[in-house]
């Protein structure tokens, strides 16, 4: 608990001491991918449902947030709300179909992946709105409403750093709140023994859907941020590789923990910045890390660290 508070405080204090744009850029990407990782972990690590639907929600909300802001004139922070609601609707449809038919483990993964592919096809071919393969260049800055300061435009690495860090913090808090309540007990019961959960009166379908909807809704905010930060959105946001990258982060960091995916995100986002690799070599490295983690260190960095600490304490 104390260790966690120190870590978070250090993150908040960091820009006061470090002014390296290079480092801040890495951390901004870490935070955005961390949001995806934490929310995937809610669905996968905590509820036991291996979802491949994250890229769809990530991409759709990136497009929607930008389009709502540029075409409908909504401020950025308001445009994220309809995007999140769309994510919930999509998650409800896909989740209902999968959970109704009790698709589990890799059948669930495949069907969510197939749905994500269909959504990618729609985005790719809806030229009039999405500009197809060419993608959209994002102009304008995200704006945030702050109490006492009114609407502020996000400009410069430090402002971006705090915007993404606060977003990540809120994501973690919402997930932690769900997990420490009766909801989290239901998620865990479903992950560990679905049939037993059912005989104890837990509506398995409803809580799987709840986990899936909450995870996807929170993931949608990462999409909006990513689009604005990189100033470019294309159908690659919805690609299968995106799913694999986030999954690798969750596994490497430690599934079933909230800090793990952020650690995994830090390692894997800084890697291409620290060593210069071409895209193919990077994919090979990610694949190798994924396999290594599963076969050699299945609990991930944080899980292994926690186990080591528990052993030392005992």
């Amino acid at each position: 608990m104390i260790l966690r508070l120190v870590l978070w405080s250090a993150l908040y204090a960091l820009p006061i001491f470090v002014r390296s744009d290079f480092l801040l850029t890495i951390l901004i990407f870490t935070f955005i991918y961390g949001m995806l990782g934490v929310t995937l972990d809610l669905i996968f690590g905590f509820t036991g449902q291996l979802s491949m639907f994250h890229p769809a929600v990530f991409g759709v909300s990136a497009y929607m947030t930008y389009l709502l802001a540029s075409k409908a004139g909504l401020p950025f922070w308001l445009a994220t709300i309809p995007s999140a609601l769309t994510a919930v609707v999509l998650a409800m449809i896909v989740g209902s179909i999968c959970f109704k038919f009790r698709l589990k483990t890799f059948y669930f993964a495949v069907v969510t992946l197939a749905f994500a592919e269909v959504i990618r096809l729609v985005v790719l071919n809806w030229n009039s709105v999405t500009n197809g393969t060419l993608g959209l260049v994002v102009t304008g800055r995200p704006t945030v409403w702050l109490p006492g300061m009114g609407v502020v435009a996000i400009k410069g690495p430090v402002a971006w750093y705090y915007l993404t860090l606060v977003s990540l913090t809120l994501t973690v808090i919402v997930c932690a709140r769900c997990l420490s309540s009766w909801m989290g007990r239901c998620f865990g019961a479903i992950r560990l023994n679905e049939d037993l959960a059912r005989t104890l009166g837990i509506d398995v379908f409803r809580y799987k859907l709840a986990s899936f909807a909450v995870g996807n809704a929170l993931a949608s905010f990462a999409g909006g941020l990513y689009g604005y930060y990189t100033a470019y959105i294309d159908p690659g946001y919805l690609s299968i590789n995106q799913s694999m990258d986030v999954l690798a982060m969750v596994l490497l960091g430690g599934q079933g923990t909230l800090i793990g995916p952020i650690v995994g995100s830090l390692v894997l986002t800084s890697l291409p910045h620290v060593i210069d690799l071409r895209a193919e070599a990077r994919a090979i490295l990610y694949g190798a890390i994924l396999i290594f983690t599963i076969l050699v260190m299945p609990r991930g960095i944080v899980g292994t660290f926690n186990a080591w600490r528990a052993r030392r304490a005992a």
Binding site: L50, T105, F106, A109, N241, M244, L247, A248, L251, A279, E280, A281, A283, I284, Y286, G287, A288, I289, L290, I291, I294, L295, P298
Partner: peptide
């Protein structure tokens, strides 16, 4: 372990596909 099999497969897909690309 279905999930681990799937995850190892995904890693292998990534490696082989990228190797073929290279």
């Amino acid at each position: 372990n279905l999930v681990n099999g799937l995850l190892v497969s995904i890693g292998l897909i990534s490696i082989l596909e990228s190797a073929a690309l290279l």
